[in-house]
Every structure is written in C-alpha cells, then in structure tokens.
C-alpha cells in the first residue's frame, strides 16, 4: 500500500489539473460563446425569434443550405466510399499522392477553394465554364461543388482507417463462397464500415450546413430573386448590417448540428453496449 499510495495521489492530482484545464479551455472557446448566443436569442423574445426565422429570405436561405448539404452528403457518400476503397484496396502508382490530395481541402483555406472553382467554372471567363450551357458559378451547382469539396476529407478520414484495419479477407472469403463484387460490397463491406459511414455522414452534414468561405465566393451572395444566400451567408449579412436576426439564425444552425451529433453518439453508445 505504502508503495502505491504516492503515485496514485499524484496521478489523481494531475488528472484533476488536466480536467480543469480542459474544462477552462472548452468554456472559453465553446461554452461561453454558445451561451451568449443562446442568451441573446432568448432575451430578444420569441416573437423576434419567429420573425427572424420565418422571413422569406431566411426560409429560402435555410432551404438552400439544406439542398446544398443533402446534395453534398450524397455526393460525399458515393465519392468517399469509392475513393476510400481505391486508396485502401488497390496498389497503384500515385496512390500516396492521391491520398495526400484528397486530404488537401482540409488544410487549404475555403476562400482559395472558392476562387479556384470560379477560375475554372465561371461562365464568362472560366477554363471549363465557358463551354458549359448552364451556370455553375453564382448558382446552386457551384455551391454544391464547393461544399462537397471542403467536406470530402471528413468522410475519408472516417472510412480509410476502418477499411485499412479490416483488410479484405472477408471479401475474399465471400468471393470464394460465390458472392459477386456487388454482393461482397453490400453484404460485407457496407456492414463493416457502417458505423464509420454514419459518423462520416454526420460530420459532412454539419460541415456542409455551416460552410461559409467557399460558398461565399462561388455563390456571389445574391439576395432577393435568384437568391444564392445560404444560412451562414445570411447570418453574416445581418450581422454586418446591424439588422435583427443573426443570433436567432445562428441558434438554428447550432441546434441542427447538436441534434446530428447527439444522434450519432446515441448510436455509438448503443453499439458499444
């Protein structure tokens, strides 16, 4: 006992110190700001809240954000699974380079992503956009592209480690038992990556709904008819013009994210039980 007591005391003291630091850190950068937004929303009253979220521009902004988010989640799921399988199951020249490139959007500023997309797809001056007969930049397709681009790495970072760890023994076993490529995918690969995929979808969704920088550039932030202003863009606008509503609209964004993350952690704890 005498031998084990001092280190245990020490470790519990350092445990508490660490907890305090973590708590302080999270309070300063997350909890206090969240509280302020919550407080502002409440203190301005429910009628203001309702007015802020039910105006035409707010409803359109929410619809646009939702459309962008859903579309890029779908694209990211398909692209993410495909790319993750390519990176883990196949050996080819340039595989590592492709892996690094796929991770790039997370380290490059979203503004740069937006500008790059404009350079390529702008209908007046873009390399590629000039030859398309529909509008990409300042329209929904460009916004979806930008959102997908910045959130793809989140999906890959969930899927690649799981696929690497599970290897392809199970798929091979299924193959010898007569399963076609598609059957192997549906019956073996998908169940194996299910939890990671669910978490990847939530992360992508949260990122897509909140995306500001890249969408700001490619959307042109158009208000009124032909609105391309998504919810984060609208919040920014309200805030810089001292109009009512930025906190109430922010509250909507925060709630959506909290619900999404709560749903997955619920799932996760169920799977661990």
């Amino acid at each position: 006992m005498a031998d084990t007591l001092p280190p245990r005391l020490g470790s519990s003291r350092s445990k508490w110190t660490l907890r305090l630091i973590a708590l302080g850190y999270i309070s300063v950068i997350v909890l206090v700001p969240l509280y302020v937004i919550f407080y502002k929303t409440i203190s301005e009253g429910w009628s203001t809240f309702w007015a802020a979220i039910s105006s035409d521009e707010a409803v359109t902004a929410m619809r646009l954000s939702a459309e962008c988010a859903v579309a890029s989640v779908i694209l990211n799921t398909i692209l993410g699974i495909g790319l993750a399988l390519l990176l883990t199951r196949y050996r080819f020249r340039g595989r590592r380079l492709l892996g690094a490139l796929a991770d790039l959007p997370i380290s490059v500023s979203p503004i740069v992503v937006g500008l790059a997309l404009v350079l390529v797809y702008s209908s007046t001056s873009g390399w590629f956009g000039k030859h398309l007969d529909f509008q990409v930049i300042f329209a929904l397709p460009g916004m979806i592209m930008a959102t997908t681009f910045v959130s793809l790495p989140l999906m890959l970072r969930e899927l690649v480690p799981v696929l690497e760890e599970s290897g392809d023994d199970m798929e091979q076993a299924a193959r010898v038992l007569g399963a076609s490529g598609w059957q192997q995918f549906i019956r073996i690969t998908v169940p194996t990556i299910r939890a990671a995929l669910a978490y990847g979808i939530v992360l992508t969704l949260a990122r897509s709904i909140g995306e500001f920088g890249a969408v700001r550039i490619v959307s042109g932030n158009v208000q009124g008819s032909g609105q391309t202003q998504t919810l984060p863009l609208l919040i920014d606008d309200k805030y810089t013009n001292f109009e009512p509503g930025p906190y109430q609209l922010s509250m909507v964004l925060i709630l959506v994210t909290i619900v999404a993350i709560a749903l997955t952690s619920l799932r996760r704890s169920k799977e661990h039980a």
Partner: peptide, 29 residues
C-alpha cells in the same frame, strides 16, 4: 473466377464475417 470454381477456402485468420452470427456465417454461401 473464384465465385464459380466451387472451392471451399479457409484462411489463416479465419476471415469470419464479423457482423453476422455463426449461423449466418455458415449459411452465407
């Protein structure tokens, strides 16, 4: 292709289908 050779294959590390019960594993083929 392996699917149509009608061979049974047993792997060193079992390659058990982790998400399926023992019954479903055996029933797979």
């Amino acid at each position: 292709p392996a699917q149509r050779r009608n061979v049974g294959f047993v792997f060193q590390h079992y390659a058990a289908f982790k998400h399926l019960s023992v019954y479903r594993n055996v029933a797979f083929g």
